[in-house]
Design a protein around this nucleic acid. Structure first.
Lengths: 175, 175
DNA sequence: ACAGCCATGTAACTTGTTACATGATTTT
DNA sequence: AAAATCATGTAACAAGTTACATGGCTGT
């Protein structure tokens, strides 16, 4: 439920065509999440199906320009004014992995260790990307968010390790 | 890609039937993400389709017991030993929302404000849930993760507001 | 008798995602 | 002439999710 609303938000600034939407979406959110062009069109047809946008005639260059509808504008207002709830968020794969490792497995530490290394590397790349990023204030915020999240993850991993160390792991499970 | 692997991990401890899997999944990960029982069965049939589990005969009580296959075990080892990469994670709706608000809209502050209130409330509920939670070490870690994430979100929201205050918002867009 | 839990399953749908086909225009 | 970029679109699938149908068993 994010690309859908993202494209809608871009369309609320004025009519756009597909290719243009991808470009703007990527300059807003950055290269970290590349957006496949095909998805722009699938998403646009779903938005059209739901009467949130409507395609106009082709322009002089033969491009299909989409316009947001009143319902689309309302939906967008709703989106901006409604906070993202805990329940809306997808299940976090890492959290499930560690939870399962704790319940199912003996040795969680290598899992934590591998993740920590990966997250640290991610953090370095993010910092580098942030140094490189000159303009685009929105992109900078996206990078910052990722940095904050990665740091929180590191802290959580440390915390998990500490907890594991405190309560000695029950013996090696079967296999 | 999380429930799938989660159920597989539970099955790696020994044969289980559907209803039991939901119960164990929920005691591991907690009530924050309730798992619809229907999904257990759809996921199980997909795991079966991919030869990662195989259903046995019904037991004395007529329950269908699933067993992990060798391929399933391998897949699970791979899952545990491979860290979750940045690119694996789903797009964060809140981040996209703020990025879009920055590019498209004039006033980001009410969006930030609404989110901050919601996140703060979430944080209080999580703290309460943590106090209430007596046993289940895995569940406690899940709660901790959510708390760490919510705190990081608060910090990021503060940061966004600070950045917005520093660089005065370009004028009210159309509409 | 009836409520409620245990237990399995299916149909239908959503979003996200990619691979591929197709053609126009632009650059080298 | 070839390569790259602009531009649109479709088919196909994965995973997540819910609503619903069905039946057995248990406690009141």
């Amino acid at each position: 439920m994010a690309i859908r609303q993202g494209l809608l938000a871009l369309l609320s600034q004025g009519p756009r065509y597909g290719y243009q939407l991808r470009a703007e979406f990527e300059t807003s959110t950055g290269a970290t999440w590349p957006l496949n062009i095909g998805q722009v069109y699938t998403t646009l047809s779903r938005l059209e199906r739901d009467d949130l946008v409507s395609p106009g005639e082709q322009d002089e260059q033969g491009r299909v320009v989409y316009t947001i509808t009143e319902a689309g504008r309302a939906e967008m207002e709703r989106w901006f004014s409604t906070p993202v709830a805990q329940a809306d968020r997808p299940r976090d794969e890492l959290v499930i992995k560690l939870a399962m490792a704790v319940t199912a497995r003996a040795d969680v530490r290598p899992v934590i260790q591998a993740q920590r290394t990966a997250t640290m590397r991610t953090l370095q790349e993010l910092t580098r990307a942030k140094r490189a990023n000159a303009g685009e204030p929105a992109q900078r915020l996206v990078l910052d968010s990722m940095i904050f999240q990665a740091e929180a993850e590191q802290r959580w991993l440390d915390h998990c390790e500490a907890v594991m160390a405190a309560s000695p792991q029950t013996q090696e499970t079967q296999r």
